[in-house]
């Protein structure tokens, strides 16, 4: 249950209703920011942020650093078995 697409927030449409314009490969759509804005955080702070878009909502802030790390792991495959997942270490 899943079709989500990464897009960049390029403009705030209406701060009151928490809507912004997201751009996905040159295509623009309105998205709702309720899921990615904590209480009191101004919508403008998300300009330029990449988000995961699903059915008209920004559902997650894409973590550029994690994306880079995932790709780095792929580039150094021999280390994959050793690295594992630090959060699961017991």
């Amino acid at each position: 249950m899943c079709l989500g697409v990464p897009g960049e927030i390029i403009a705030i449409e209406d701060a009151g209703s928490l809507t912004a314009v997201v751009e996905i490969s040159g295509v623009r759509r309105s998205v709702n920011l309720a899921c990615v804005l904590a209480e009191g955080v101004p919508p403008e702070s998300l300009l330029g942020q990449w988000v995961l878009v699903h059915v008209g909502f920004a559902m997650s802030l894409i973590d550029a650093e994690e994306a880079r790390k995932t790709l780095e792991l792929l580039a150094e495959l021999q280390n994959l078995a050793a690295a594992g997942d630090p959060e699961v270490r017991d």
Partner: peptide
């Protein structure tokens, strides 16, 4: 494929 057509395709699957 033009980027915008690609965008429409990715958004709508």
């Amino acid at each position: 494929v033009k980027p915008e057509v690609r965008g429409v395709c990715e958004i709508l699957g």
